[in-house]
Write a protein that binds this DNA or RNA. Structure first.
Lengths: 247, 247
DNA sequence: GCAAAAGTGTTAATGTTACACCCATGT
DNA sequence: ACATGGGTGTAACATTAACACTTTTGC
């Protein structure tokens, strides 16, 4: 589009342009999201996703990185940031039409955030303990979580949850927390090590008070996981296929 | 987001809000997109994706459906419509800041469209023969095509390319055109019939001048394909030829 | 009968799952 | 030695790919 006659130009819709962030990490074995207590505006003192209006001449992704920095001190170079989708329902913001572009940010576990300019408080909350949020943020959160769950399978996203360098065991903990399943330690090891470009061994090892020292890894360059890390099917295994019969 | 103090409110960004449509179909065995020749505005007489500004108090999806109707006569009830992503770079529209939400529309093969209000011409073009488009529409098109290719695997999207009722052979033609591969006729048949809820037999058959009559199907209610339709790996091996003659 | 497309059966190769078992370390 | 987690081997099972063969129609 963006087709427009002179008449079309005159009556074209203008809307507020904002970004909202679904910042996920794994803390204590649970998938966790960063929430802020809104300091002002509508839904004051409601919990919400961090975010804010895009500045003039500012790219969406830069706005997302800026909000992240302002609210958490995180720098976008350290983490994965991707667009999820846009929410622009007419009634979603009482101040008027606002189109909010949601971004998913994946970060290693971090210290509790400090409240920023737009928030009176900020904290990490396990995604299954999140209450009613401001605006349509419960929907945005659900979409972000769903996106991260499915991308774990075929993208190297899981490694973005780990502070580098990390062990295979820590990586497995990410998969278990995000998917909410238990994975076989031995099969998992072989599977991830068999994915070309996923993990790069540092040559170092981490010794721990318990167990054999584990080799350390960094994120590799692979953009997609081939083969994928199989996600256990929730309903168990399929039984025999029934071939479709006609008449 | 949508956090805003009184100060934040005053300086919030406002932008034009538009939708662009990647309307795909399969024609003559090729994945094909609907393009319009821009009748006015910037990029006049350049080919572009159909789309336009969102009206006041109009939902994004309604705007997408309206543009589709205006430019092609298609009704959204007949086709699959989903949001892909939002493009809002500062320089993408010479008229100013415009956020364009891209939608993917999948339609059965249709007669050539008629030009609408914003377009001086409209036509179907095979996606691998698309030239330089207006704005950033080549990028939007590429993202839409990529989305449709990956969704074919695990969603019932392929059936939206077929006018109902359809045969298994027609459905296979969709997969072959979109993925650009040849699929084994017999394995494909078993695979799709084994997916619960994908296809619903009508009980009717379609007789053709050549070959055995094929049972007809409609789209089922499945939202996801379990198991998925396996997509041949690109770095793969086998090129299949199906001569149709038995050895 | 013949060509063409639908549909079934079968097998080899491949992939996945589950678990036995060994390794290396701190206590 | 033992507990703990890292790492390898392997057999059972499930899935996939390739293709032989049969069925049903129009001409």
């Amino acid at each position: 589009m963006t087709a427009g006659t002179a008449a079309g130009l005159a009556r074209r819709t203008r809307a507020g342009l904002a970004v909202d962030l679904v910042v996920l990490t794994v803390r204590d074995g649970a998938l966790t999201v960063l929430l802020v207590d809104r300091g002002g505006g509508p839904f004051r003192h409601r919990w919400a996703l961090p975010g804010g209006f895009v500045h003039h001449d500012e790219e969406l992704e830069d706005a997302a990185a800026r909000e992240l920095r302002e609210e958490t001190g995180l720098h976008a170079t350290d983490l994965h940031l991707e667009q999820v989708r846009t929410y622009a329902s007419c009634g979603r913001d009482p101040r008027g039409r606002v189109a909010s572009v949601a971004y998913l940010a994946i970060a290693p576990d971090l210290p509790p955030p400090t409240a920023g300019s737009d928030a009176s408080d900020a904290r990490w909350v396990a995604v299954d303990r999140v209450g009613r949020l401001a605006f349509d943020h419960n929907t945005i959160l659900a979409d972000g979580v769903e996106r991260s769950r499915s991308k774990l399978e075929y993208s190297p996203l899981a490694a973005s949850f780990c502070p580098e360098p990390f062990t295979i065991g820590e990586l497995r903990g990410i998969y278990e927390a995000v998917w909410g399943v238990r994975l076989d330690r031995r099969s998992f090891h072989r599977t991830v090590c068999g994915v070309d470009g996923f993990l790069v061994p540092t040559g170092e090892r981490r010794t721990s008070p318990t167990g054999r020292p584990a080799p350390l890894y960094r994120r590799g360059r692979a953009g997609a996981l081939r083969p994928a890390i199989p996600r256990p099917s929730p309903g168990g295994h399929r039984d025999l296929r029934e071939t479709g019969r006609q008449q």
